[in-house]
């Protein structure tokens, strides 16, 4: 028998968990799978058309790039928020959550206006020969905006728990600043950073509202997978939309699952393997 727990009800809570996840996540997704199961091979083949393949590639690539950018920048923001007490820190802290709250379309329109060739930022970048709006770069900009809070909010609590004395210890042992960062700080933050990255990446894959305004949506060039699905639906091509959605879903899920496995490995390595022993000190 399992050891007695303080809070009882494993059976009940697991049952509720399965029911809840089933209703909220699995039923809609399996409907998708069921619809796809009714498709013929030809209809399924639509999911492998060049236009669809380009959309997957774009969606995955931009989401990955934006998540990577956020992993770096989010770590920095979290670091500054945790380690330095500066005036207005609470305000900056609240600002981080804004991309969560803002309707994504608002973000998309604002970004498009800013980064278009006659926009405030876009005009200056255009002078440097850099085109952002209506290119994959614009998609990365939009996804970076919506993904930032995920990294900051996962890394921040871990950083708060981290003992600055470990950094002092590394310094007293002769480590340079970069050695202290890479050998002492980063290994402690890696699981949280990976979680934040995964969340930002997942959000980037599914993001629609903020991207379509800045992307330009040119087939084969700047058309993301979620938009391709919408376009097919608007053309009453339910079969095509379903096929694309299914492929995109499977690809996203296997990527996220892989990242979760990676996190699990990190977490196991960090966890104690045996209980502390209080003998022979």
């Amino acid at each position: 028998m399992a050891a007695r727990r303080v809070l009882p009800g494993f059976g009940l809570s697991l049952g509720l968990t399965v029911l809840y996840l089933g209703l909220v996540v699995l039923v809609p997704l399996s409907t998708l799978a069921l619809t796809a199961a009714g498709l013929s091979w030809d209809q399924l083949w639509a999911a492998a058309a060049p236009r669809a393949l380009a959309a997957y590639r774009l969606s995955l690539g931009c989401a990955f790039g934006a998540a990577l950018l956020n992993a770096g920048a989010g770590l920095l923001v979290a670091w500054v928020l945790v380690r330095y007490p500066f005036p207005g820190r609470r305000l900056v802290d609240a600002l981080v959550d804004l991309p969560f709250a803002l309707p994504t379309a608002v973000a998309g329109i604002t970004l498009a206006a800013l980064y278009s060739e006659n926009g405030w930022v876009g005009a200056r970048l255009a002078a440097l020969g850099l085109k952002v709006a209506y290119t994959p770069l614009g998609i990365v900009v939009a996804l970076t905006f919506v993904g930032l809070p995920f990294v900051v909010r996962t890394v921040q609590p871990v950083l708060e728990e981290l003992d600055p004395e470990a950094e002092d210890a590394a310094c007293s042992l002769g480590a340079t600043r970069s050695q202290t960062f890479f050998k002492v700080l980063l290994p402690e933050l890696r699981p949280a950073l990976l979680t934040g990255f995964t969340l930002a990446f997942a959000r980037g894959l599914g993001e629609y509202g903020s991207v379509i305004f800045i992307a330009g949506n040119m087939p084969l060039k700047t058309e993301i997978a979620p938009l391709l699905i919408m376009i097919k639906l608007e053309q009453y091509d339910v079969a095509g939309a379903t096929a694309v959605a299914l492929v995109f879903l499977l690809a996203s899920f296997s990527l996220l699952f892989g990242l979760h496995l990676l996190q699990g490995r990190g977490a196991r390595a960090a966890a104690p393997r045996r209980l502390p022993r209080e003998d022979a000190a």
Binding site: D163, E165, A166, D168, A169, A170, S172, L173, G174, A175, T176, Q179, K183, V184, P187, E188, A269, A270
Partner: peptide, 25 residues
Amino acid sequence: GFVFQHYALFKHMSVFENVAFGLRV
């Protein structure tokens, strides 16, 4: 050599690697 009040050991490293740290850097 500085010994901290709460030891400040590197949590993600084994005891061996903790002691070896100063030599490896």
